[in-house]
Simulated scan of single mutants.
Amino acid sequence: MNAERPSAGFPPLVEPGPELPPELVERYRRQITLPHIGAVGQRRIRSASVLVIGAGGLGSPVVHYLAGCGVGSLTIVDDDAVDLSNLHRQVIHGVDTLGEPKAESAARAVARLDPSIRVQPVNARVSAENVLDLVQGHDVIVDGSDNFATRYLVADASEITGVPVVWGAVLRRSGHVSVFWPGRGAHYRDVFPEPPGPAEAPSCAQAGVLGTLPGVIGTVMATQVLLLVTGTGSPLIGRLLVWDEATSTSRTLLTAPDPTRTRAAEIGPFPGSALCTAGAPGPQETVDPAALREILDAAAAGGPVPVLVDVREPWEFAAGALPGSVNVPLHTVLEHGVGALPAGDEVVLYCQGGVRSAQALAALRPAWTDREGRLRHLAGGYDGWQRG
């Protein structure tokens, strides 16, 4: 990847639909007035069908602005529910939709904005079994997912079907956007042949994110969709935009196809998947919320009392924790090992969602064999416990 260079023009992805009725002409008058959009461009936008993966931090502005600009058909895929901690950045949702599926909450927001838009919420996780079916029939994919398994699945489905992907990601103070269009520029696997390790790419819950950053990146992603649909401007094909929130600066890196890479012909495991699961807790090292409640009920009745260790940060622990648990942050566990934990015949590690506790268990496992007692982690973490 090298210095900045504008990409060449590309043909419109979508043929113009029928003439717009007067009420839509009035609604989109400010866009139609633009010479490079005009009535024909707006008809292309209205005929476009866009698949949006993720209705979270990036999906929120993408869905809102694509609907506002008149994209006629949106499919929104997300398997998560709206949580209070989402609302500072996932502004398409509100307190009135807490606990509801994000895909459905986002679909209702679209209906409030423009009930004439066709919107299909899909409350499911993207998988090897459903990704090709999800992609079929759409003009563009927007990948606003927050995990590498989904990103590689979407990338391979794009290469198989030929449907371009507008991809974005945020981490701490920086954001990235690019367009991956099979046969035109680099593929996601060309730029990211291997996923980073968990420590290199923590989630927003672990690393934190200012609420405005996904708004900036998501809006750029929505713009890329409109450029592709109308065939105007220079979309980020063969280029990777990097935005630094702290300095309010950006740079654009060139990307290129890897001639040695084998093109995707079927949906398979993403690179590094075996490595990523090699140290994951097994069934004997995992307890779910229901089973932990049974253990605690038995302890209240005179049975063995488990030691509950919260590996989150102190401020998270102070905001709410499992009854009787002790706080030993992950960085302390990683630095001091088993010596940082209280003794017990049954030790259960937990965090917010289960990622950090699994990491702590993997780090403690080698030395734990010399220590009496059982070590497990809570699947789903504190979030799963609260959901019951």
Rank of each mutant, 00 (worst) to 15 (best):
P314Y: 00
A103V: 01
A186G: 06
L330C: 05
T75D: 08
D345C: 07
P164L: 01
P329D: 03
G175A: 06
P257A: 08
W167M: 03
L227T: 07
K102Y: 02
F192Y: 04
D258K: 08
R376Q: 14
R376T: 14
V338T: 15
G302D: 10
L134I: 14
L98F: 00
R376P: 10
P182I: 09
R312K: 04
A128K: 12
A149W: 07
C351F: 07
V229T: 10
F10G: 10
L334E: 11
P12N: 09
E26M: 10
F10C: 10
L20H: 12
S234H: 15
G233R: 07
P269L: 01
I237N: 09
G57E: 03
G72N: 13
T247I: 00
A321G: 00
L210E: 03
L98T: 00
L241P: 01
P198E: 12
L226K: 09
G354M: 06
G302A: 12
L364W: 09
H336R: 15
H336T: 09
G208I: 00
Q359K: 07
A274H: 13
T230C: 14
G162H: 12
D288T: 13
L58S: 05
H138I: 14
H336F: 13
D190A: 05
V220I: 15
T262I: 11
L227Y: 11
V338D: 11
L341W: 15
R356L: 12
A107Y: 02
I217Q: 04
I45D: 11
G337L: 09
F10P: 08
P366C: 08
R5T: 11
S145I: 05
V309K: 15
D79R: 06
D190I: 08
G320D: 00
R46S: 15
S105T: 01
F317V: 02
V166M: 11
R374L: 15
R172K: 02
G59D: 05
V119E: 03
L13S: 06
I76T: 09
D78F: 01
P12Q: 12
T212M: 04
L227M: 12
V110I: 03
V166W: 13
P271L: 13
R365C: 11
E285V: 13
H138R: 11
D258R: 10
L241A: 07
V126Q: 01
V63I: 15
G59E: 05
R261N: 13
S250C: 04
I92R: 00
G337C: 08
P342N: 12
R356A: 10
R151S: 01
G268A: 11
G162I: 14
T219S: 05
R371C: 12
G303P: 11
D146H: 02
D114Y: 08
S127Y: 05
L253Q: 05
D114M: 08
Q120E: 13
C69Q: 14
L241K: 04
S47Y: 14
G57K: 07
G272V: 05
S234G: 13
E4R: 02
E200P: 02
H93N: 01
V242L: 03
R44L: 06
E15Y: 09
V163H: 11
C204S: 04
E19T: 14
V242A: 00
G388Y: 04
A290D: 08
R293H: 02
H331W: 07
V62L: 07
Y28W: 11
G344W: 14
L275K: 05
V328Y: 15
A186F: 09
F180G: 03
I37C: 14
V110N: 06
S47D: 14
L308E: 06
